[in-house]
Write a protein that binds this DNA or RNA. Structure first.
Lengths: 241, 241
DNA sequence: CGGCTTATGTGACCGGTGTAAACAATGTGA
DNA sequence: TCACATTGTTTACACCGGTCACATAAGCCG
């Protein structure tokens, strides 16, 4: 069942070339069909803003019989599940990247993380839909998704801890803070992924990019030790009307 | 090339008819099949936490041929679309009910509305998934959904206006406030509907019912004119740890 | 009443989809 | 070299959404 994940760095291209040899007789295709399947499935998911493809389409796109998929995945859900895990990994990577670009200030890092959450859903709506808005049947998948999700949350939790150490935001269970801070961005992402961008974002902000930064500021402010005054907060909230 | 070798082996359709033969008309069923279809479809959706049924299953559950559905709906999306609209109507009704139960104070009403948003997703996850987490193809459906959604938002916007008049919360575009206030509850609902209840809610709160009230308080507080102090806010946020 | 139109349900069928089973070609280790 | 596990193919099945020709009930009009 568990296959050794040998790292044949890229023989895919080579084996694909083999088919170029004359009329690609019955010679076989991939040594690593699995990688190619995932890759293509991810591409289709990205193109269509969601895991909207059939196994047959996927297989024929790679010039392979549709049942070949079952040599590498138990069923379609297993494929989707692996893709989902890669989505969480991608998301975590995006978070880390955003954090490291934000400079040394813990509060700036925290804001960058919140903004990156939104940006991820904007940049990869297919991933987001796959990860959160689609229904994987098996409870196994669900638990795996949960663990990966908390893995992605880990970065956020650490950032919150740093902000507490630097006395930027209030003390208290960082996990709880992280879960709450993520709700509003997640809600917005859910709207976006389902094709419904809240009107005030679409109209009154210049774009989703700005909106991400704006939301990060607004969302975190209530937890700052040195909060804005009510007036200043309102001014921030209603900026660029 | 096997187009049609044997096709039979499904004659369950007559069973229900013969069973009701004694008291009901033998041949015909419903003058209003449409209502029965929607009703059953909603029941299945509620039972399965999402619109997970086939037209054939739906039809046979009512003892009719699956093509009968097409006498009342153009296609499956049309059925789902009508169900979606009923979902928004149900949600708006729940909002109004919650508001009227909250007493006369505008701020209490606003809190009740925010809590009711979450409670709706908890009570009717099938509806919620249908309304927000499923992908209706047609842009028509999407626009109808938007308008109905803003219809549901209308109640919230009015409540916000009332709170501004009563000097409970800050001035500013009520629509924008409404859209933002709804994000965190919606994010939580999206988590819930996708089977992922944030850990801190499941563990540290007594239940989702309490969590709804808690979230309404926490979410609105930043916009109060008489905000809590940072300490008091933190105390509220980390209540019942 | 009889005949017409219209609304509604039926069955046969099409292309497509996920999945299982038997089979065949490949590569690898003994 | 040869058995054998790996991997892709062929065939087949049950199910799905959707179309079409057809049957039949309901209503309407003379």
């Amino acid at each position: 069942m568990s296959k050794d994940m040998q790292k044949g760095s890229d023989h895919v291209a080579a084996s694909q070339r083999s088919s170029k040899k004359t009329e690609d007789r019955k010679t076989y295709h991939y040594a690593q069909l699995k990688e190619a399947l995932i890759e293509t499935a991810l591409r289709l998911t990205a193109e269509r803003d969601g895991p909207v493809f059939s196994l047959r389409e996927l297989a024929t796109a790679l010039g392979v019989s549709h049942t070949a998929v079952y040599r590498h995945f138990a069923d379609k859900d297993a494929l989707l599940e692996e893709m989902t895990q890669m989505g969480f990994a991608e998301m975590a990577a995006a978070q880390v990247a955003a954090q490291s670009k934000a400079g040394p200030a813990p509060l700036m890092q925290l804001r960058a993380l919140c903004a990156a959450y939104i940006r991820f859903a904007v940049d990869y709506p297919g991933y987001f839909t796959l990860m959160f808005n689609s229904r994987l049947g098996s409870p196994v998948a669900s638990s795996a998704r949960d663990s990966h999700n908390s893995g992605a949350l880990k970065v956020l939790i650490d950032a919150i801890r740093a902000c507490q150490v630097s006395k930027d935001i209030v003390d208290g269970d960082p996990e709880r803070l992280a879960a709450y801070l993520v709700l509003a961005p997640h809600g917005m992402c859910s709207y976006i992924a389902s094709g419904h961008i809240p009107g005030f974002i679409a109209r009154q902000q210049e774009g989703l990019n700005d909106a991400a930064d704006w939301m990060a500021q607004v969302g975190i402010d209530p937890f700052l030790i040195q909060r804005r005054s009510p007036d200043a907060f309102a001014q921030l909230f209603f900026s660029n009307d």
